[in-house]
Each structure stands twice: as structure tokens, then as C-alpha cells.
Write a protein that binds this DNA or RNA. Structure first.
Length: 313
RNA sequence: CGCGGGAUAGAGCAAUUGGCAGCUCGUCGGGCCCAUAACCCGAAGGUUCCCGGUUCGAGUCCGGGUCCCGCAA
């Protein structure tokens, strides 16, 4: 679309996959000082029951701007095309970038990471911060090295996590901050006015890739506020869930409650649904039973009165 | 043909061995009340997803099809 006006900017190769990466890419595309000449993203993946091949959000965005895209299955034996830019930007790419690729960029590979490094190195920094009940996180821009988010820091900016923020909200805020911070940081990298700061490895923490199992609620060992944090961090995926009558029960929307109820017991009262936790309790606002559509609390109660006082496992 | 659950009133769910299709909520009307989304009384609302088969009789049993959902990927 407007790529003509951007043709003159510093050329960049962009690595990214998810929506956060889209925002970062968008920022670069709108800047007259940079020109994204190649986008490398993950291959199209089968999605849903019908296994429809779906391109990553970044690929879709790049194509709409008619930017060439590459989707290598593995970067291990991948070679950056000759004549590519000397600078690369990485955001939520989702795969390890091997040393051989890093070395292909003489001006360096810049990573936008969604935590205050060295905290939360790894795959799920935003979710982990929320799940742990942190009240602050941020974006760090760093120079990549061979380790997992271990490179020297170029710049960072903090963000307060509000008590009711969920993952998509924090992700969105960090995307805005990160995009702006990147555009401020890159020129300083290019003219050498930033001195990269080595990370303090002794303060480092790691976070793993999330799985569906991480969203399982253990009513008798989890406190209500922990469950609420888990819900906020794992929304919308993998989400929090439990089992009722041998069926998977997804909790789409919950909030902490003061009700005194035994752990794991379901209670219908005044059109509302409550469940007891190890300490405190949870009110369920929207939920979905396996094989059934998603519904709100009142609707669920209308049809499933038999589950009043049932026990969740 | 990866595994499994489902489709019944506007919504969510029942319906025994095949035998008058019900419940909760909502909607509409009336009543009560200073008032109410609260409470009481009443009413409307159905091609039981589609096509075919078995039967005196099918929401229910058999065959085929469409759609939704939970896993898995």
C-alpha cells in the first residue's frame, strides 16, 4: 500500500508469528525510516476439527502489504537469501533461531520480548506474569544471542498489570508500548548511541510453553485468588477448566467471590453459580460443558438444575 | 473416513419397555406493592434438524444426509 514511501528506509528482515508480532510489524511498516524487505514466519498450520490450513497472522499481514514471506519448517538448515538486509527484528517468532542465522545479520538481530528481562525468559512471559499475580511487567528490547532470551538489553519500559487485566489486554498494551519503544530504540542502535547492558543472570527466571493441562483447576489445593490469576493469564488459551460428572467443563469467565463453600462444590443461588476453592470461592459467569455450547450462568442453571451441589474434580 | 457428545417452544434442558411431548427461564396478559429485574394467577408459543424405512402407533428403533460442540492435531 504505502510501501513506496518506505522504500528508502533502513532495510529489515522481520521474524514473527502471533498478533503481538503483527503490531510490531505494523509499527515498522508505518515508519518512514525502515523498510521491511522480507518476513519470516511459521508455516501454515491445520486449525480446528476440519484441519484447515491457516496462515499465521503475521503472514496474512505481510501479504496484504505485498511483502515477500518465507515459512521454513526449521531454521536449522535455512539460509537467509543472499542480498538480504544486515538487520533483523524478532517478535514472538516461536522457534529457536540458530547461531548461523544470527550471524547472517552483520548489524545484529533485535528481539522484542514481553517481560522485564532477565525475568520470564522463554515462551509465555505475559501469561506467567499474570498467573503469578505480578502487578508489573514490561517490554524489553535486546540484542539476540544463542541463548533463550539471554542477550544484552538495549531498552525497556514497564507496564502496570491491573487486578482484573487478562492476557489479551496486557498483550495489547505491551504491543503498543513495544512498537513505540522499538522505533525509538532502533535508530540509536544504528548510530551506536546505545550501550547494550548485560543481563544479570542471577536474577533470571524462565517460563515454559503453555499446555492445556496448565489450565486445569485443582479446587482443593488452589486458593481463589490463584485460580483467578490463572484464569486471567490463560485466557483465551488454554483457558481454565475442570470436570463435572466426567465431562470437561470450561470456565470462560469467572470472578473471585466471598461465598463460603466447601472446596470443589458447585452452588446455584439467585441465578449465580459459585464454586468453593481451598481458600475463598469463585463465581462462574460464563461456562461451557463438553458437547454443549457456551452459555452464561443463568442459562446453565435453567437447564442443569441437577448439578446444583455437584462436586467438581 | 482420527476419537467422542449433541440437535425437542425464543434460550437451556427432560420425556420409563415405542403409547396424550414436559420443566426452568424468557415473552405476552392480569394481580399484589410506595416500588421492582421480587412475589401470585393466567396465556401464547412445536413439521421433536432433513430424507427414507420398520410399526396400529416413532422424539424414541434402522439406514442415509446436514449442522454444532469437547478432545486430538
Amino acid at each position: 500500500m504505502q510501501q513506496d514511501s518506505a522504500q528508502n528506509g533502513t532495510p529489515i528482515v522481520f521474524f514473527g508469528t502471533q498478533t503481538f508480532a503483527c503490531h510490531i510489524l505494523q509499527g515498522l511498516l508505518q515508519s518512514p525510516f525502515f523498510h521491511v524487505s522480507l518476513v519470516i514466519t511459521q508455516p501454515d498450520k491445520p486449525v480446528g476439527r476440519k484441519k484447515v490450513l491457516t496462515p499465521s497472522p503475521v503472514k496474512t499481514l505481510a501479504q496484504s502489504f505485498e511483502i515477500p514471506t518465507e515459512t521454513p519448517n526449521s531454521l536449522k538448515n535455512y539460509q537467509i537469501p543472499p542480498g538480504s538486509p544486515a538487520l533483523a527484528v524478532v517478535a514472538q517468532y516461536g522457534k529457536i533461531i540458530p547461531e548461523s542465522i544470527l550471524n547472517s545479520f552483520s548489524m545484529g538481530v533485535i528481539n522484542v520480548h514481553t517481560s522485564l528481562l532477565p525475568k520470564y525468559r522463554g515462551a509465555s512471559p505475559i501469561q506467567s506474569a499474570i498467573v503469578n499475580g505480578d502487578t508489573q511487567t514490561g517490554v524489553t528490547i535486546m540484542l539476540m544471542d544463542v541463548g533463550m532470551d539471554t542477550g544484552p538489553i538495549l531498552s525497556y519500559e514497564t507496564l502496570r498489570i491491573l487486578p482484573d487485566d487478562t492476557y489479551p489486554e496486557v498483550d495489547q498494551k505491551l504491543a503498543n508500548i513495544g512498537s513505540e519503544l522499538l522505533l525509538q530504540t532502533l535508530p540509536k542502535v544504528l548510530d551506536g548511541t546505545i550501550t547494550p547492558q548485560k543481563q544479570n543472570d542471577s536474577e533470571a527466571t524462565a517460563c515454559k510453553m503453555l499446555s492445556r493441562e496448565d489450565g486445569k483447576i485443582h479446587w482443593d489445593t488452589m486458593k481463589a485468588n490463584h485460580i483467578y490469576n490463572l484464569y486471567r493469564g490463560l485466557t483465551p488459551w488454554p483457558g481454565v477448566w475442570t470436570t463435572l460428572d466426567g465431562l470437561r467443563l470450561k470456565l470462560h469467565k469467572i470472578t473471585p467471590s466471598e461465598k463460603g463453600i466447601p472446596a470443589g462444590v458447585l452452588l446455584f443461588e439467585d441465578g449465580k453459580i459459585y464454586v468453593g476453592a481451598m481458600e475463598g470461592s469463585i463465581e462462574i459467569l460464563d461456562l461451557q460443558l463438553e458437547g454443549k455450547p457456551s452459555m452464561n450462568a443463568q442459562t446453565f442453571i435453567n437447564g442443569f438444575q441437577k448439578y446444583n451441589h455437584a462436586h467438581l474434580i
